[in-house]
């Protein structure tokens, strides 16, 4: 895939970290404000997709990236499942998805038991998944048919 002009590339360089940070903020505050894992993850994915669009990329690099992201995605889902499963073990009454951590005070950043942790895991997963979808579609349309 071809890159874009120097103006786009420079601006992307400036903007991408801010987008990433904003996505992170939305994920971490998911249990307090609107947003959460999915919305934040999508924003974070923007920070990864933008440089690829601006700078362009070559097929082998994209393939390598895709493999890594796939691993990250699977690990995140597994993490989500494990945290949900921990509820099964630690809640005492064998309940799947039970919120076994201390709930804390309403409205504080560190509160709501395991929901923020699940949010972070979901954020990582969504970010990886969105980027994977983008890269996979790019690879599909770039590769030369046999």
């Amino acid at each position: 895939m071809r890159g874009m002009t120097i103006i786009v590339r420079k601006i992307t360089q400036l903007v991408a970290p801010v987008i990433f940070l904003y996505g992170l903020y939305i994920i971490v505050h998911g249990h307090l404000t609107p947003g959460g894992g999915f919305a934040g993850g999508v924003i974070m994915a923007g920070a990864f997709i933008l440089p690829i669009l601006a700078n362009g990329s070559i097929l082998p690099n994209l393939r390598k990236e895709e493999a890594g992201l796939e691993l990250m995605e699977s690990a995140a889902i597994l993490g989500f499942l494990i945290i949900a499963g921990l509820g099964l073990l630690f809640s005492g009454s064998l309940i799947f998805f039970s919120n076994f951590l201390h709930k804390g005070i309403l409205g504080k950043l560190v509160s709501a038991g395991f929901i923020p942790i699940e949010n972070i895991v979901v954020g990582v997963e969504v970010c990886a998944a969105m980027t994977t979808i983008f890269i996979a579609l790019t690879v599909f349309s770039e590769e030369v048919p046999k």
Binding site: F38, V126, I133, A136, L137, F140, S141
Partner: peptide, 16 residues
């Protein structure tokens, strides 16, 4: 929306 995203992505991949 998440489900729709997956469906649309798969449809587009097949279309390509």
């Amino acid at each position: 929306i998440v489900i729709g995203l997956a469906t649309t992505a798969l449809l587009l991949a097949i279309a390509i």
